[in-house]
Design a protein around this nucleic acid. Structure first.
Lengths: 126, 126
DNA sequence: CCTTACCTTTACGTTAACGTAAACTATTGA
DNA sequence: TCAATAGTTTACGTTAACGTAAAGGTAAGG
């Protein structure tokens, strides 16, 4: 029901099939097989989406795997849960730092753009 | 007046001197010299801050150089200015995408954390 | 004078995240 | 039947961003 081939996913997410297989090599994906051919479920597709989102945020693939694994229900050991909460905290700190950085960068870009536009206007009047 | 040595900057920004020299190799920094020794001005220090901020946002060093160069007043050619405005637009789009991603990731992390805490509570009651 | 602490350049090494090529299999439409 | 299309594994190549080691210059303190 609504499965995907590797090239379908590659096309949808604008990556190469090599990239998707690479994520599997690193243990981030584990699609089913029909014979030798990979078959991706909607859940696999979601994992890929999360991986790529992590990439856009500058996370390593290992980081992404850790985070994605947090969403799964295989973690019942108490110590592991505590460790996960710590990891989540750490991630949040890093992300809030990124939010700050982006805010500042956007401000800088606005200023730079304003400067450019002013320069263009003055130049146009000459 | 208020200049810095390479190791002072390295300590302040928690990077190695090798890293700072590397940025110079790539043309992101151009400190003065006293004899053979590098001397960093406050402006150089600011550039380094901007480079590292870019890094936290996942920009390549080349990207950072382009952005940082936008802030400088050496760009008077009209075509260059228009090109810069376009580059700023592109950056803004990418950054807004990152903002979106971070918002979603934070939401996910909150959920995952809540799940962990609940699991810990149930576990504690047993 | 000698060690310690910084500074320098040069250059090879390393890791992550794929790219790319080779060689092969399976399905499908003309 | 045969060529094109999409899949597979294996394995070496590549780029960015430094790490690390070698070999040496310089200034201060004991």
């Amino acid at each position: 029901m609504a499965d995907y081939s590797i090239s379908q996913l590659a096309k949808e997410f604008q990556v190469t099939t090599r990239t998707i297989r690479h994520y599997e090599d690193l243990g981030l994906l584990a699609p089913a097989r029909r014979g030798q051919t990979r078959v991706y479920s909607p859940a696999d597709r979601t994992r890929l989406r999360l991986i790529l989102r992590g990439k856009r945020l500058g996370l390593s693939l290992d980081d992404s795997r850790e985070i994605i694994d947090m969403y799964e229900p295989g973690k019942t050991n108490v110590d592991q849960l505590k460790k996960l909460i710590d990891a989540i905290q750490a991630q949040r700190i890093k992300l809030n730092q990124q939010l700050d950085d982006i805010g500042n960068l956007l401000k800088d870009l606005n200023q730079a753009e304003a400067g450019c536009i002013d320069a263009l206007k003055s130049n146009g009047k000459s």
